[in-house]
């Protein structure tokens, strides 16, 4: 109601008009300001990264300082491994909880689950790293891809849960009723009708979660750690793309910086492509349902 008082004063029309223009301009300008760093980062990374990208980068092991060539094949494979482990752990939990929260949401417990999921998504990733360290590394007495995957999996849970819940809630009740009225059981209705109808959006959510996990560095620093060679198993220290980028970036060697830029470019390209796919999927979904 105080808002209307602003209008109660018709004087200074000219001043108000000037303010109007200034504020609107500022708002447009801030939109531009926000894109500048984005464009800058995208172009800089692309320019710096693409020049050091070659086949060796994807197929060779790192070379020691001073030796030219080499790649970070082990880090790429390691990332795939760790993110794969994380997905195998985090996606089922996230998906099933999302189903619970959406389909059985009348229960009080569902609200608790929602709240706790929010809490989990707010926990800084470095703390998840500490947790995985305490639970796995300390017990097994060594760093491992397993510990890294565990940490990434936990980080993925809230995203997957939330997206699953939101996407399932978009499916109209009438479809559930239609299915149940045919004598189809609740669980088949959920899995074969509701989940399938929402699958585009849910897959999108998973991709986003995977993309984000692939770029996570902090929780891997002291879980999967790093490795200059191929790791022997998921139970041993494993190189990963982001940790490798970090180690190279803070090193004093220009050639390592080059490798780091190339790595950063790969990560950004991954994010970009996944976001694009996501856009396309959600767009299709909307045009289909309208």
């Amino acid at each position: 109601m105080e808002a209307y008082e602003i209008l109660a004063n018709p004087k200074n029309l000219k001043r108000r008009k000037i303010i109007n223009i200034v504020m609107l301009t500022l708002s447009v300008v801030s939109g531009l300001v926000a894109i500048i760093p984005l464009i800058y980062i995208l172009f800089y990374t692309t320019a710096a990264g693409i020049s050091s990208l070659n086949l060796d980068f994807f197929t060779q092991l790192p070379k020691p300082v001073g030796e030219p060539g080499g790649g970070i094949a082990n880090a790429i494979v390691g990332s795939v491994e760790i993110v794969g482990l994380g997905s195998a752990f985090g996606i089922p939990i996230g998906l099933m909880s999302g189903i619970y929260v959406s389909e059985f949401s009348k229960s009080f417990f569902a609200n608790i689950v929602k709240f706790v999921t929010d809490v989990l998504s707010g926990i800084p990733s470095i703390i998840i790293g500490i947790f995985a360290y305490g639970v796995i590394v300390l017990q097994t007495k060594h760093f491992s891809a397993l510990a890294g995957g565990f940490a990434l999996g936990i980080l993925m849970i809230p995203t997957v849960t939330r997206i699953t819940e939101e996407m399932l809630k978009l499916v109209p009740i009438s479809l559930r009723e239609a299915s149940l009225a045919l004598g189809i059981s609740r669980w088949k209705t959920t899995l074969k009708i509701v989940l399938r109808t929402a699958s585009g959006g849910i897959i999108t959510g998973m991709l986003l979660a995977i993309a984000r996990a692939a770029g996570e560095t902090a929780p891997l620093l002291f879980t999967s750690f790093g490795n200059s060679f191929w790791s022997e198993s998921i139970d041993s220290p494993t190189a990963s793309l982001p940790v490798q980028i970090f180690n190279y970036a803070i090193s004093p060697y220009a050639e390592w910086h080059q490798k780091a830029w190339a790595g950063a470019f790969v990560l950004i390209a991954l994010v970009f492509i996944i976001s694009l796919i996501v856009r396309l999927i959600t767009k299709n979904k909307f045009s289909q349902s309208v």
Binding site: L38, G215, E216, A218, I245, L267, I268, V271, I274
Partner: peptide, 17 residues
Amino acid sequence: FLIEILAAIPSIVFGFW
């Protein structure tokens, strides 16, 4: 869309930049 991408860029890339 651009802002979405900005949100998805890994923090390591921001740091490096």
